[in-house]
Write a protein that binds this DNA or RNA. Sequence first.
DNA 1: CTTATTATTGAGACCGGTCTCAAATATAAA
DNA 2: TTTATATTTGAGACCGGTCTCAATAATAAG
Lengths: 356, 356
Amino acid sequence: MDQSQSQNTSVTVADVARKAGVSKATAARVLGGYGTVSERVREAVTAAARSLDYRPNELARSMTTGRSGTIGVVVGDIENPFFSLAVRGITDVARQAGFTVILINSGEDAEIEKAAIRTLLAKRVDGLIVSPAKESDVGHLREATGSGRPLALLDRGSEFLDVDTVIADDRHAAEDVTRQLIARGHRRIAYLTACDTPDHLFRTPADINTGSVRRRIEGFLGTCGEAGLTETESWVHMGAVTPEETRRIATQILEAKNRPTAIIASDSVIGLEVFKVCRGLGLRIPHDLSLVSFHDADWTSVTTPPVTVVRQPVYRLGETAAKLLVERLNGHRTEAVRVVLRTEVVERASVANAPA
Amino acid sequence: MDQSQSQNTSVTVADVARKAGVSKATAARVLGGYGTVSERVREAVTAAARSLDYRPNELARSMTTGRSGTIGVVVGDIENPFFSLAVRGITDVARQAGFTVILINSGEDAEIEKAAIRTLLAKRVDGLIVSPAKESDVGHLREATGSGRPLALLDRGSEFLDVDTVIADDRHAAEDVTRQLIARGHRRIAYLTACDTPDHLFRTPADINTGSVRRRIEGFLGTCGEAGLTETESWVHMGAVTPEETRRIATQILEAKNRPTAIIASDSVIGLEVFKVCRGLGLRIPHDLSLVSFHDADWTSVTTPPVTVVRQPVYRLGETAAKLLVERLNGHRTEAVRVVLRTEVVERASVANAPA
DNA sequence: CTTATTATTGAGACCGGTCTCAAATATAAA
DNA sequence: TTTATATTTGAGACCGGTCTCAATAATAAG
């Protein structure tokens, strides 16, 4: 039994059947757990399978059943704590529902995302969870649903796609945060995001292809407008795609003569770099600059001062998307669901009144 | 062309062949990119495939070729920045080598890990990258290699397994750190790890099943011993498996009458909680307590004071493991390689002389 | 213009399961 | 005991590709 394991170059149902002295069909029935078999035969087959160290070939099984027991997940970057937490939520649900997860990083690149979807479809995943890089460019996602495979959108929706969507109420969160900043006397508030346009210039929210970020910026601009602030568009900075880029942009913003008195970071990776730049520049938070970051990353509560953040239910974002998908996979044929999870502004100590 | 996409209930090579007016074998040749075909036929088939919106079925392909183009990855917890960064390294290499990654979290549970391996083997992954929860209990891993599928160990090796292994020089790192602490006058140094024993008590390094952690503790104890410190075993605390547990343990340790003057945290998640507990307890770092953490997590450089850490080349750990695996998948049949990547102690400001 | 050689193509087996359908056996009813 | 009904089994098609091998067509050599 110890030695037998090595030459186990694929024991098939046919092998087990032969050893048990029954037909392939019968062996398959007990091994596959379907159909009816007599107790005597069941035991014989089970024993034969054990002695041969039979391992079912899921690929072959998927081939006929049409179900692969796999969920394809496409996220921007698993290294980002936002996504790693969401993926944790997804894998937890998937595992207990008997599904396995194929993970692909898009790097927020629409082309890679397209290739990823194609690969996943070719591998016949049963369903997909995608955090689309561009919500306008969703032809590939439509193809996916067109092929009959359910799709759930994570963190970013798309009006062009009628599928299950789980997002956070980013707009409200941005409005809240902006309102608080304005109430504190801030008039020059910069918004820093990783999203980018070809010329790195922001003109209108329509420029932003990432749903969650667009909604935040709409909230930000809307609230600014209500407060009578003008030309707020010029305070939206894009292209903070890497820590290095982020530092470059933050430094540029903060060294300008007309520098902002507050910065809103669109995610914790950006927030962290802004924090570092401030320290490097000798700017005191919140005395010289107020800082608010999206995503309640673990480090935000431990800095001096701790950072005020928009807490998103990230784990639940992933968990909910996965649950919705699994339900559909189990045959629930309802119309598309849109879940908007509540966010919460966690006020800490990185926001103060605007300097005189 | 727009409407055709919806009824694409699996167009097969046979369909394409029929439409192109050639045999299934010929269509398969051009679609599969093997064998020789005349230019005229190639175009005809390609055109037919396009008009039918043919999508290859990787499952069927894997069925005959025996290769699934998939790598199975089993890590403790993708939510931990250590693993998410390592996984990033793995997925990057896998993607560019044409492989796809199936990710499973073991939660550091040996049973779940076993089930994961079984699932992965059933799905016929081409190779495996595993960060084994227990290095002594590796029967399931031996089975994996026994089935002919290459395996690479990540961050944790096992003497019982002769496979490619990529680890960091944890022992040296621990020795360095411990030596520095001792040189600063520390005599009561606590080591805090997530690893656990049934009775939560540490007696000897042999109790520790996680390779990387065992090596660190060996380094820690060894250096303490050389310095003449005794009963250092009692300063090793286990079971910091969740943030809550970690806080409980840290609080208990730090409130004891004979509290340590320095703490070494075995990973950044633990380090963060210790930091929080200190703050909560009003203990000043490094005045009242020196803190060193493994893993140069992003937050460690931004706290006050910034935390001295052991910088591990985490991304390269994953990247290297994946490269080794891909090489083997491509037929390189060398003997098992053991790569030990250098770590580096990044001295920041959380370490000071022991209080008088 | 044959004959030898090479390039294309087609027929059909195969991978390892699932599943339909009918035959064989067992049990119940008449 | 015979007939009807329910259980178990086996034979073989099928899923959608790959791949071997032989047949056919095209090109080169004699």
